[in-house]
Design a protein around this nucleic acid. Sequence first.
DNA 1: AGTGTAAATATACGCTGTTTATTTGAAAAC
DNA 2: GTTTTCAAATAAACAGCGTATATTTACACT
Lengths: 247, 247
Amino acid sequence: MARPFRALQMPHLRESIKDSAWRQITESGASSLSLRKIAREIGITAPAIYNYFPDRDALVTALIIDAYASFGDFQHEAKASFPEPGQAAERLRATGIAYRRWAIKYPHRYMLIFGSPVPGYVPPMQELLPVMMRSLGALTAVIAELHIAGRLEVRGIPHPLIEPGHRFFSLPDTADPGTFAVYSVAMLIWSRVHGLVSLEITGQLPPFAEDGEALYRYELDAICLQFIRPSQDGEDVISSTRSRSSQ
Amino acid sequence: MARPFRALQMPHLRESIKDSAWRQITESGASSLSLRKIAREIGITAPAIYNYFPDRDALVTALIIDAYASFGDFQHEAKASFPEPGQAAERLRATGIAYRRWAIKYPHRYMLIFGSPVPGYVPPMQELLPVMMRSLGALTAVIAELHIAGRLEVRGIPHPLIEPGHRFFSLPDTADPGTFAVYSVAMLIWSRVHGLVSLEITGQLPPFAEDGEALYRYELDAICLQFIRPSQDGEDVISSTRSRSSQ
DNA sequence: AGTGTAAATATACGCTGTTTATTTGAAAAC
DNA sequence: GTTTTCAAATAAACAGCGTATATTTACACT
């Protein structure tokens, strides 16, 4: 037989392929992803996959895009959990907490996005930039809101090399040229949560530093203390479990 | 012919294998490392490699150990460049600068150590822990020296889950139980430099944040401001390009 | 000189991604 | 209601991979 009756075949074969790929990645990591194994699992032959993805890298890219969507939803939901204008600090913390929670919930998806666990795969940045920007846009938007409210500490922040018309992130419309510091702050915060989270979920934190949660909470506190100024209308920075020496 | 004359063969075949492996990794990344390609390059057959490494993972482990040695040397040299007891802050900065410099000089080695770019490879922690600890020991020792000098800001640092006899890092002998905060601070600082450096060398910093050097210098300054207290004998914290608001 | 061993080769197995040619169900056209 | 057309599947094959097995052979020791 060459082609089964359409009534008998799975109508959403493209989705089935991705589902099987995710199952493999969840079980044994992205490095062991195999087109033939996928085909075996869903009962087709390996070349049939090429009707839905031009090659293995295209499948991986599709998986990454889906993972970014899931991650981005998580981020934006966390941001939306504190919608009041005065709650920018809480929004920042919430997105930070959500960042680690998503990474721990889907460690392989996290590594698929932010690591490079697939053998010869090189991410097509042109294709991935939009979803990447949407995901990181939650964090950037929060920081931009802090900046607009005059609560972002921007002294000493290096200027990003960006021309005015060239904006990737979702950023409220302002003419303030100092706004570009927002990008740098976003990168700095992102690199900090990424550093701790990636070391934790890859098991690279030494045995005695098992309590990733405590380290992460401390790090979020430190980030807030570094970049958030107290609001001028009496609302204080969010409560912190530690204090800081005056410097 | 089955076995060439010893006079004709390369006497250091094990080293030749590793050299060829490094060449491949440097040229096309660790994911495309191939035993058969190595054998082809140095003019032997693929199974001959099994006389020197039980399998491909053992070769990768040997490469990682060598990379750790190079990285550790770099770290300890940077630390030794400010040998005076009062120069602990400079030592911290120097190790931080050296961290990024080594990573940029050998990006594939960095990813081989701190990423997971080889298909099915799972690092044998028991074997790698010593070299890993020696490398990170430079940073930890500097922080411990700061702590002993009373210049480490440890308020609010979460306690690591470690029993007293169980020490991995090279740490000066003190009975101070608060010393364990040193471990947490080391992990926090490590995760921050790792986060920024890994994003930079994998090209994941968005296009406008190309100036990784500026971001990194800012981050090092922030780290010093957060964890180093001014010395009590008049020596101030190292000069910084930015100031901080009182909080 | 003879023997044992270690290091290399030759061969083969099963796996991978991918390409080609071929078949065939289903829909469209007449 | 045929016939044509097309898309989706299969079958077969290729090159490359890590690795296991059996075999050859140069060297060292007795």
